[in-house]
Write a protein that binds this DNA or RNA. Structure first.
Lengths: 235, 235
DNA sequence: AATTATCAATCGTTCCATGGATTAAATGAC
DNA sequence: GTCATTTAATCCATGGAACGATTGATAATT
């Protein structure tokens, strides 16, 4: 948990000088915070993060040169567990989704009351995610839509359902890039039997080589039905 | 937007008779709501949804026979755009993630104050997502962790970066399940040249057949670098 | 400026292994 | 009696390995 005897170390990154100054003043009013750095340049911000290890990084997404999303990625590569709170001018669902996916811990709109920014810092410092209701809704607009598209593919006229149990096992091994001989050994059947199964699979999936069979399986949500032999092999 | 002249039609599904009764009474107190149905059985709930087309469905996740998640899927298959609000006893991050991914519009814990349930209904009826701060945090615990695992694979010693431009184009076609001859035709080069490229790809990706090359590409975030010729072909 | 080295991209030939199509058939379970 | 599972034998196409070799672009060296 948070150590209330120490001041929260906050770093600011925003290419807009006015915003930067405004935010800095706002945060400096809070006695429990300590602004360890404020810069208009993302790359400079990265080295400041390396040097000062701030608890919280408040960062604009929309910056020239290196944008906020790229900067989050760079921070992740550093292996430093800093809590990033994104500042943005727009409630673009795609942008919110990508920022959160990259590990942002909070997202605040610049149009929001300044008290929200303090809320965000407090919440995030407390180990929680700060995402206002509107932005949560925006996030899920994107997220649920993407999930829907995904399920569309794996649903609807799914030829995978026509496969028998044994064919499923064989397809499972095919999707692991294993050849006839090894499949035969794994299933303890002859190679010709494997070929028969594979041929049947091809016909059912309406393809004519293993690569396309594997591609079909992967893009249609194939999940090996009997995972038994793998677990046994692991034992 | 919501039509305030009409009552919100609410359907309840919860296998626990006491909960069901309690929630029903709670909601009945609100004059702007109309409970169109309340059932302890998920499958019965489904037919009630078909019949009454409620604005909101309040549903328990933890039910015998058919659980809440499966029920959401069934509702989705019906093609009815009902807003599902999940009721759950636990703030399990995995469960929250899956429910939201399947399209739930809200998530409320049974341990929360009953006023939260009203808040949820209001918020969701208003077209927004209702996810309390704690649950948002839980959700992102799972979501960001999954994203992290994903990026781990596509990052780190990625052999794909060693491929040349031409090799990338060839691999792109390989991942579409195309054979040597057709690749040669598409790229307007000889088949032997394609084989040379493919062999180089195999060595760089440390595999020895096309299936494994394709599998490597797909599991390591391969994105064809030059999409030009495809766009040109489309024109 | 001339050279050397490196590397991407191209093509060819040979040769063998593997993949895949086809046809046929036996067994056992439901 | 249908269907899943198994095996066999034949045959051809495709995939892939191995070795060699040319061109052009780029960079480094002299």
């Amino acid at each position: 948990m948070r150590d209330f005897t120490k001041k929260l170390r906050v770093l600011l990154i925003d290419d807009n000088a006015n915003h930067l100054r405004g935010i800095k003043e706002l945060i400096s009013l809070e006695t429990s915070y300590n602004v360890v750095g404020a810069t208009r340049n993302a790359n400079l911000g990265l080295s400041l993060i390396k040097k000062y290890r701030p608890d919280i990084v408040l960062m604009d997404v929309n910056m020239p040169e290196k944008d906020g999303l790229q900067t989050i990625q760079s921070i992740n590569k550093l292996g430093i567990s800093t809590n990033v709170v994104i500042l943005s001018g727009y409630d673009d669902s795609d942008l919110i989704y990508r920022a959160m996916k990259l590990g942002a811990r909070g997202y605040v709109l610049k149009t929001m009351a300044s008290s929200k920014l303090i809320d965000a810092i407090e919440t995030v410092a407390d180990g929680k995610i700060y995402l206002p209701s509107v932005l949560t809704t925006r996030f899920f607009e994107y997220f649920q839509n993407a999930a829907k598209e995904e399920s569309k593919v794996s649903a609807g006229e799914n030829l995978l359902t026509t496969l028998t149990g044994r064919e499923n096992e064989v397809l499972d091994l095919l999707t692991q890039g294993i050849n006839y001989k090894s499949i035969a050994q794994k299933l303890i059947i002859s190679e010709t039997t494997v070929k028969t199964h594979v041929n049947n699979i091809f016909q059912k999936l309406q393809v004519n080589d293993r690569t396309n069979a594997v591609l079909y399986a992967l893009t249609h949500g194939f999940k090996p039905s009997s995972t038994m032999q793998q677990e046994m092999a692991a034992a």
